[in-house]
Design a protein around this nucleic acid. Sequence first.
DNA 1: TTAAACATGATAGTATTACTATTGTTTAAT
DNA 2: ATTAAACAATAGTAATACTATCATGTTTAA
Lengths: 224, 224
Amino acid sequence: MDFQLSFKVNEHLYLKDPETSELGKQIVKESIDLIHSLGIEHFTFKKLAVQINTTEATIYRYFENKQKLLLYILNWYWSYMAFLVMLKCQNINIPEDKLITILEILTHDLPERSGLQEYNHKHLNEIIVRESTKAYLIREVNELNKEDFFKPYKALCASIADVLLECNPSYPYPRSLSSTMIETAHAQQFFAEHLPRLTNVQDLGKREYTYLFLKDLIFKALAK
Amino acid sequence: MDFQLSFKVNEHLYLKDPETSELGKQIVKESIDLIHSLGIEHFTFKKLAVQINTTEATIYRYFENKQKLLLYILNWYWSYMAFLVMLKCQNINIPEDKLITILEILTHDLPERSGLQEYNHKHLNEIIVRESTKAYLIREVNELNKEDFFKPYKALCASIADVLLECNPSYPYPRSLSSTMIETAHAQQFFAEHLPRLTNVQDLGKREYTYLFLKDLIFKALAK
DNA sequence: TTAAACATGATAGTATTACTATTGTTTAAT
DNA sequence: ATTAAACAATAGTAATACTATCATGTTTAA
């Protein structure tokens, strides 16, 4: 079975839809690798242009600037996560089992070759962990929010919050717990790898460790 | 009683100690206000120089670049937080009460005019919330860590973790819970203000809301 | 007291970044 | 065969992130 998954992302994020051309797809694909290797701060359209043998001006025809490109990638990622949550929880009846599944999705690597764009999953994962907060922890957050650029994040947060409420209908902070899960999944993985004294990771891998910590935290929070 | 509190920050963070001159102090003080109003991305030494009527070159004699200046401010802040935790928990015997005190310190505004540098506390608070993660969520994190630039953060994390362990000596993730507390205190405040659908804040203020959410979360996590 | 050391200001200059604009060529669609 | 779009190539601008030099005024130490 060969299928293509794609998500419509907010069209104000790009000037020309990168999905509509080979070059556009290459821009997104290569930018994931280049942001991964340089960090968003050192990443420039000039460097990306050199990498894929085109010109700066060409890339500017697709994206206004690198922040929009990052947001495009994040929108895609958040939509994909929400899709995975929906898909994998579909046939589960016990809410606690759904929650386990969600924790696995949040902490473990994206499934390799899952019929979607052939982005480098390891790189995508790592730029999400390192760069995603930079998309909203900025002065311009309110303007970006007005343009609905965080809608997929809110949707993901809401659908996880629903499961949390299924586990305990009287829990008073489902959305905060949901966003804390998402953020903590990233932060603890980063800490476990780079600043391990901010964690209690030992010989476990960062993903497995984060999974266990979060599972303990969330289930206790929801206990009646 | 009039006293001056100061913390020794890692001397590799500056080229010339800003505490040793009026101009140096002004650079730090004004940079807090300017980073607050522009965001670290749009903040430049040139703009700061204009603000305090000096030259770019002069500021470069104090700090290598704006990232180091931000780290300097963060080091000061983390040290101050650790000091506050130590001070305010000193005469408390019941570990749960210590924890309450720590949650208040983390979520509520810094005490105004507490005998320390007359930085704008509101601005300092808000740049911590918005900018602090950018100091370590970068490619260079390992090199910065080798130079001990995150030592005060780790110290703060460790001293909170000690209190968590006092509450429940068998809790297996005290440092992760501690770093999660610190990060979540920031993230939820930011969300409550700018992206409220990622929270369940209602008519409560962002600080009070974050305090209540975190108190619930942490005490449940530590319950035996 | 006098010279050295130091702090700052003034000015200049460079490479890179973050764009915008123009023009010409190739490709694809009608 | 004509036309429109996509892209490459080139140029140019303002701002950023620095580095360097030199003059001047101020402390300090011999």
